[in-house]
Design a protein around this nucleic acid. Sequence first.
RNA 1: GUGAGUGUAGCUCAGUUGGUUAGAGCACCAGAUUGUGGCUCUGGGGGUCGUGGGUUCAAUUCCCAUCACUCACCCCA
Length: 420
Amino acid sequence: MIKKIKGTQDILPEETPQWVALENLIRRIMDRYNFRELRTPIFEQTQLFARGIGQLTDIVSKEMYTFLDRGKKQLTLKPEMTAPIMRAYIENKLYAKAPMNKLFYIAPLFRQENPQAGRLRQFHQFGAETLGTPDPLADAEIIDLTLTVFNEIGLKNLSLRINSVGDPVCRSPYKKQLQDYILPKLDQYCPYCQRRYEENPLRILDCKNPTCARLNRDAPKLTDNLCDECNRHYLKVKDQLKLLGIPFVEDPYLVRGLDYYTRTVFEITSDALGAQNAICGGGRYDLLANELSGPETPAVGFAAGMERLLMVMEQQKIQLQAPARLDVFLAALGENAKKETLKWLKRLRSEGFSAETDFLDRSIKAQMREANRQKARFVLILGDNELKQNRFSVKLMDKGEQLNIPLNEVISFLKEQNKK
RNA sequence: GUGAGUGUAGCUCAGUUGGUUAGAGCACCAGAUUGUGGCUCUGGGGGUCGUGGGUUCAAUUCCCAUCACUCACCCCA
């Protein structure tokens, strides 16, 4: 048997309504916040991610699906959306059409990691990016937007953590300061942290190894060493969150994995998930456009994991949409009646009813069972008796009643019933 | 890449201290009700016990290997 690729999932018909409902809700809210959808190709030149996300990040160094096409071009299935959005923004010169662009996406992404609860090789994210302003109000709007989506879904027990990672001006002296603090105890840190020491000492701060966390307790904090501008920015973001009534926790150890972040970073986690408990992450990335040879474009955005959201929703028994119900099941008995079924189905469907019949030549009993299985509201029975009288037997499945309705009145009868 | 756990019916799982025809619940089909669903009752179909090898008179059970899945580490959505 040929099986699906490890870490991928079939989304079965019983699950798709929940997906579609979630997507619709996201689109409605994006519309209210005036973000517009941008769709980009499923693959890109590998260079885009290598330069945009950073060579040293886990995503680029070991998780990308990269391959050569027939022209020996190196391509990569997109592992995240911020770089492609920025590429499209630069390539299509959106900055020239408007001084500021608010964009959103819903897209499948690919990372070659070992799957586990809440982690897949093909997964889906939705997200939004505000391009073209350094204003802390934009940071706050992005955070408010994500929480609005989660609140309207009805999610409970989320927590928002925020931090500022500064900019190159304040980060490099701080890096040195941090390395000076760590160096005397470097041999006590875990092997991963020892490796991070040279390349990315900031990441040592959010190591979850208990020993490392203990050693980090008295480490200098970047938030205490921000330059004036970064500090003012961070204060304004926090002010706005307070004004909006959004509860948050400052986490000086929150350091996000991708290289392009500057200033604001944030993460939203749910206690309903396993080890992979982040449902949303984001922040400001003022330098990415430059990195990709575009015009200087301060930007802020977020990405949220759809599968993880759906997992939390399932745990919290949140159903965005009532399960689908069939309006009408047409049960036909005998050759003469069967000849008429498709014509009647077409009529019912053109009147807006969902309608189905039996294609397996089954008994009336089996057809009724099928109608019940599909939660049909009405069953129209057409047999020899009905044909003789030019009438349908109409069974109201919820009540168990059965009526006799002339053929030419059945549509208006069903419409009348529908109003109740 | 590393570690642990699990593979028995469509699904969830029992079970066999190695022994003839491998079980339950749910689901499916049929009958009780020969033109009527849900509830109930009765019956039925469906399994190379993940795969390959070894030990044995005999393996679904023990041993080895292998594959798949799951969870976790790293990191992330």
